[in-house]
């Protein structure tokens, strides 16, 4: 299983439900609002593998309808280095 974590060189500030996330120390600042902010929070709260079903439950949308978009979004965050994928065991071990 995979856990998504915030890398050490990424700063995150959440204000009024909007997520501001930036590479440190150079930026830029990415702004995640609405569903993007929700997926960000959910992504950090559990396993990547069941993220689409958790988003599906929270948004009352069929999982097959949203799974691809959620996966693309997470891939984009990983590509930009704003999130990091680690094995659940490694995260649990600290």
């Amino acid at each position: 299983m995979t856990r998504l974590v915030v890398p050490d060189d990424v700063g995150v500030e959440v204000v009024d439900g909007i997520v501001y996330v930036a590479h440190l120390p150079d930026g830029p600042i990415a702004v995640l609002d609405g569903i993007a902010a929700f997926i960000w929070g959910e992504a950090l709260a559990g396993e990547r593998e069941d993220l689409p079903s958790r988003v599906s439950t929270a948004t009352s949308r069929p999982v097959q309808e949203i799974a691809e978009a959620v996966s693309e979004f997470i891939d984009d965050l990983l590509r930009r280095g704003l999130m990091l994928a680690r094995s659940s065991d490694a995260v649990a071990a600290g």
């Binding site: 700063g11 500030e13 204000v15 501001y20 930036a22 440190l24 120390p25 150079d26 930026g27 600042i29």
Partner: peptide, 9 residues
Amino acid sequence: VRLTLGRAA
């Protein structure tokens, strides 16, 4: 937000 992230930077 800019100030908070700026301090971290």
